[in-house]
Design a protein around this nucleic acid. Structure first.
Lengths: 325, 325
DNA sequence: TTGTATGCGTTATCAA
DNA sequence: TTGATAACGCATACAA
């Protein structure tokens, strides 16, 4: 009815196409009245690019990941990329999840999963598309990583404890398979060692990054008869659980009896009941680096890119280490 | 090289296709060795169904929405649907966001946005695809909603306050445009009225669903010279802020001096420092209802479905209303 | 059961 | 500037 060819319609919606203003007007008017909207699906077949990025994530109940996802989604959209979200609880479902993503011809994958096993790394490598990992230092062809300086933060935490004359330090660890957590712990040990603290003084508690695991860990510590005076927790949620348990189970108050540091600087760390000193991962920077990696990797689509960025974490001092509000 | 036709390949990957086990074997073996994976994009063109659902969400820093998204994403994947995530901060970006989603031929939209304006409703209706709204009772063609019983929860909150002999109740409201929050407030007013509380006794504080706004609201209340003894907050984050402000600014402790209820039952409500009584929205139920709506709407693709589900919110009593832990 | 042919809605190429 | 045409990778109807 509009009396134009199908190519004219295509050109009308392409800003760079060579088309007269008159024709474009006519097409756009007809489109508006008919409710026509261009379909991007065929273009995916022709160009081989979908402009969709698979975002594989787990543990959204951790506000850190929720915030990171929010920022990442915003950044991707600003760069003309769509987010195909895949929530994964365990490595078992990851394989089929990746299959699904690949069948939609996503251009790349961004994941914040704590990649623990080599099989997962291999699966990611074999996709043959760029992969960017948040906070998991595993590498391989096609795989790039953006990490915060976990080891350095551990050192800083140890120094701060030493500076406060801590004698009974505690490392509240995250899941064993979490490489970022391990790096924080190693930095912390080394920092304590550098400060002359005897290794035997350190108590190590195993948690799983949840509030409850932080709470329970302190309860276990009490049974062991240890009275801590300085704690570094691998993330803020465990630190919050620890603060509550210290008060309720051991009658210890923060920072009077014990100082404590967390990691991630989640919003709750600033809530007055916790007032928790923490390391900020600067997700804005990390997201920006991720976008750079994606841009570069997608520009050179054929050649596997494998790069690592390390973004320094910033110590945010609050009341839990004695800093005035 | 495999010596089979292109249709044979297609059939090998279709569980229902008529193909011999031998041929399928051969194809799958060749696919594995060549790294071939079927492409779902052409099928979208042929069938007109993408099996992608647009999920439009805002405010992921609220753990309630983060958890809801997690459950929704899981449910969608279990039903063979992909999640195309769209994070939207303001209604301005919504329009272009919807355009992008539609150009990818998503089958439906699920949104948890607080739909405030009629223009947004119209935009959603005009997509011509099923839309399911979480907690926003606006209706229109193609639009279905899944709400929690906000009004009923308000009534319950008022009754609980009345039962505790509260004389100076406070309603800590969410954003004005948030229909769910308004319904909670109306239920609360009505419940107070039913209990014989004089309307003038009620203090109304305006918040925006953030922790800070809850904190600041209480600070304002102090300036007004009001000493509250019972508070109903439109969400848990504001309630947490209020609890901290009550203690820090007014020296009031919970539940000794003032009892308080929130809404959403976020994980932090169970954290020991807050121990907050709250209404659980039963996101599992709401997500299940959402999936039912989607299934039905996608089955009858041509005819606009418009249905409303109301899921009762459940009162979870904790220490903030005097319930023993 | 298997292979051949057609078409889905675009973009890119080429001719007019 | 415009229109006609090929091609993208698969599913399906049909023929063998």
């Amino acid at each position: 009815m509009a009396g134009v060819s199908q190519s004219a319609v295509s050109r009308a919606f392409s800003p760079t196409a060579s088309i007269s203003a008159r024709t474009r007007q006519k097409v756009l008017a007809a489109a508006a009245s008919l409710g026509y909207r261009p379909n991007r699906i065929p273009a995916i077949m022709l160009s081989g690019r979908s402009y969709m990025v698979g975002v594989v994530i787990g543990g959204l109940q951790n506000p850190f990941y929720a915030t990171a996802l929010e920022q990442l989604a915003t950044a991707l959209r600003e760069n003309g990329l769509q987010v195909m979200l895949m929530h994964v609880e365990d490595a078992v479902t990851l394989d089929s999840a990746l299959d699904q993503l690949v069948s939609y011809r996503i251009d790349a994958v961004v994941t914040s999963l704590a990649i623990g096993s080599d099989t997962v790394v291999r699966a990611l490598s074999q996709l043959g598309i760029p992969v960017v990992c948040f906070n998991s230092s595993r590498v391989g062809p096609w795989i790039s990583t953006v990490n915060s300086n976990n080891h350095g933060a551990g050192l800083t935490a140890a120094r701060l404890l030493a500076h406060n004359g801590i004698r009974y330090p505690v490392w509240l660890a995250g899941p064993v398979r979490n490489a970022a957590s391990r790096a924080r712990g190693e930095g912390f040990r080394q920092g304590l060692h550098d400060a002359g603290s005897p290794p035997a003084a350190l108590s190590v508690l195993q948690g799983d990054d949840t509030y409850d695991s932080g709470y329970d860990a302190i309860a276990r510590l009490k049974k062991r008869g240890v009275r801590p005076d300085g704690i570094f927790a691998s993330n803020d949620m465990m630190a919050c659980g620890a603060i509550d348990a210290l008060r309720e189970c051991m009658g210890l108050h923060c920072p009077r009896d014990v100082i404590i540091l967390g990691y991630d600087n989640i919003p709750q760390a600033a809530w007055r009941s916790y007032d928790l000193t923490s390391f900020s991962q600067h997700t804005e920077h990390m997201v920006a680096r991720t976008m750079e990696l994606l841009d570069e990797a997608l520009a050179t689509q054929d050649t596997p890119l494998s790069r690592t960025y390390v973004v320094d974490a910033q110590l945010i001092e609050r009341g839990s280490t004695g800093c005035a509000p």
